[in-house]
C-alpha cells in the first residue's frame, strides 16, 4: 500500500491510498494519521477509491483517526472505495453511515 499525502487550500490534509488496507498496513496508516492530527492538521480527507481490500484492522485505523480528529475539532472523511469488495467492510459494520463518504475527493473537500 502506498500513502500519498498533500494539503488543500481549505486547510484539508488529503491522503490517497491504494492496494490493500489490511492488518499488515494498518499500523502505517495509524501512525501517519496520529502524526497528522498531533501537528494540528485535523481535517483529513482520505481517498480510498484505489483500495481493493479493507479488513477490520484497516477499518480500525480509520476509526481511530476519525475519533482523534473529531476530538480535536476536525474530522476524517473518505472517498469511498470503487471496489465492492473493499466497500463491504464499511457496509457490514455500518461505518458507511458513521464516516462522511463521497465518490470524488473534490466534492468531499469543497463541502468542508
Amino acid at each position: 500500500m502506498e500513502i500519498l499525502t498533500g494539503s488543500h487550500e481549505r486547510a484539508v490534509t488529503t491522503m490517497a491510498l491504494d492496494g490493500r488496507l489490511d492488518a499488515l498496513e494498518a499500523g502505517q496508516l495509524r501512525g501517519i494519521l496520529s502524526e497528522t492530527i498531533e501537528r494540528g492538521d485535523v481535517n483529513i480527507a482520505i481517498d480510498l477509491s484505489a483500495v481493493d481490500f479493507v479488513d477490520s484492522a484497516g477499518l480500525a485505523a480509520l476509526v481511530k483517526g476519525m475519533k482523534d480528529a473529531r476530538q480535536a475539532g476536525g474530522d476524517v472523511k473518505l472517498v469511498a472505495p470503487k471496489s465492492a469488495d473493499a466497500m463491504r467492510v464499511f457496509e457490514l459494520t455500518r461505518f458507511d453511515r458513521v464516516f462522511e463518504m463521497a465518490s470524488e475527493l473534490s466534492s468531499l473537500v469543497e463541502k468542508w
Partner: peptide
C-alpha cells in the same frame, strides 16, 4: 456491539463480519 455513531468502537468487528 453494533457501532455507536457517538462513540464508535475501534476493534471487535472481525467475528461480526
Amino acid at each position: 456491539a453494533a457501532p455507536d455513531e457517538n462513540n464508535p468502537q475501534e476493534r471487535g468487528y472481525g467475528l461480526m463480519i
